[in-house]
Design a protein around this nucleic acid. Structure first.
Lengths: 212, 212
DNA sequence: GCCGTAAGTTTACGCTGTAAGATGACATAC
DNA sequence: GTATGTCATCTTACAGCGTAAACTTACGGC
């Protein structure tokens, strides 16, 4: 039994394990020692396949970015809409990735997405100046909304009565409107969150349509 | 000369020093040891005035939130506009704070701002459902745009030829549209960034106006 | 003098990323 | 067969982090 039963390490296996760990336990739970343990190796062994922790984080972010299809240059506003929805859904699956994007961690795939979005806007007939602003608004919505949704949905798992939880965190007496807002979220349930994203997105797209 | 020359510690002095340190060197430069050193005390002495590092970070975030005036409930869309601009300007002065807000660090002042914004929307005549969505879009724009601007503007200080820097990071050959976009940013200069924020904001507000 | 309280310091613990060196397995060359 | 080189892995170590616990020092009230 001297032979090792472990599957050998590889960059792919390390990234897959890191992605799983981060999706389940959050980005702050990712440490080289913990990841090594999850794989059955020592922390330092990971450095044979990954140059450092930053490289590791870039690697899993790239996996998420690969889930976002950039819009085709001639797709018009419908293509922008569906690529935005796809990006939002990827960020919803991997909430930590929205934080990384918001922290300015720029990856080639991200640049390609940005460039494709700009190209699509130009191809749709917007002026350079309008494209400049439309891009900002769209990107802020995609990332900003995903972030908001992430933090907003962070209700502790061990809460049984969610309504009572909201009552305690956001009492009607001091925050009447915020309380109402939170209750709307609860009433709709999480399945309604994507429509909320799309509602705002459509608001933006209609405004842009009128600008063209 | 046995008497100490140091001004005594206090929560206010600690928070002020932390805010200065973080504004100058970024949130990741904030450690208890470094902050203590900046004040001329040992790290552990800070714990007599601050319960832990989280409390410290909450404290400086509260200082930033105090710079954001919530909209009055009967101010209508103009009040929403100016409070959004004020919030954006505060986040521009303290870029790290946008990250904290985006990370879901909720403070009472933040809840008050959210409640006031919702109240103002309701007071402006929006239905509960439209308010629900309008709030998301506005908040995503405020935080999302500020974040984007922060990360985008993070050009190393020691760069002399900014144009060449952009050429290297975003070559025209591979990212033609993104290159154009970056050049627009450079041509306008940082003084134009707030107008960019307001341009997008006005786009949103006009859409909302039409929904009412 | 004495005591209580509060502020500041020292030391220590477990955690982090990772540099440096030791160990061992295996392929190639002679 | 043996020597050599290469490479993955592990061990050890270091500086930094937040902070708990214990200690010292200063001061106000009796």
């Amino acid at each position: 039994m001297a032979t090792t039963r472990r599957k050998p390490l590889s960059r792919e296996r390390i990234l897959a394990a890191a992605l799983e760990l981060v999706d389940e336990q959050g980005i702050e739970a990712l440490s080289m020692r913990r990841l090594g343990q999850a794989l059955g190796y020592e922390a330092m062994s990971l450095y044979n396949h990954v140059s450092n922790k930053d490289d590791l984080v870039d690697g899993i972010l790239d996996l998420v970015l690969a889930e976002m299809e950039p819009p085709p240059p001639d797709g018009g506003l419908p293509a922008i809409r569906s690529s935005a929805v796809a990006a939002h859904e990827a960020l919803k699956r991997h909430p930590w990735a929205a934080h990384l994007l918001a922290s300015g961690r720029i990856r080639p795939a991200r640049l390609r997405y940005m460039d494709a979005l700009l190209a699509c806007l130009r191809g749709t007939g917007f002026s350079a100046e309008t494209t400049y602003h439309a891009y900002h608004v769209l990107d802020a919505h995609i990332v900003g909304f995903s972030l908001w949704q992430t933090t907003h949905g962070s209700i502790p798992d061990d809460i049984e009565d969610v309504g009572a939880f909201v009552d305690r965190m956001v009492p009607t007496s001091t925050f009447p409107h915020l309380h109402e807002h939170a209750m709307q979220h609860l009433a709709d349930g999480p399945h309604q969150d994507i429509p909320a994203f799309e509602y705002g997105l459509d608001l933006l797209l209609e405004s842009l349509e009128r600008l063209r």
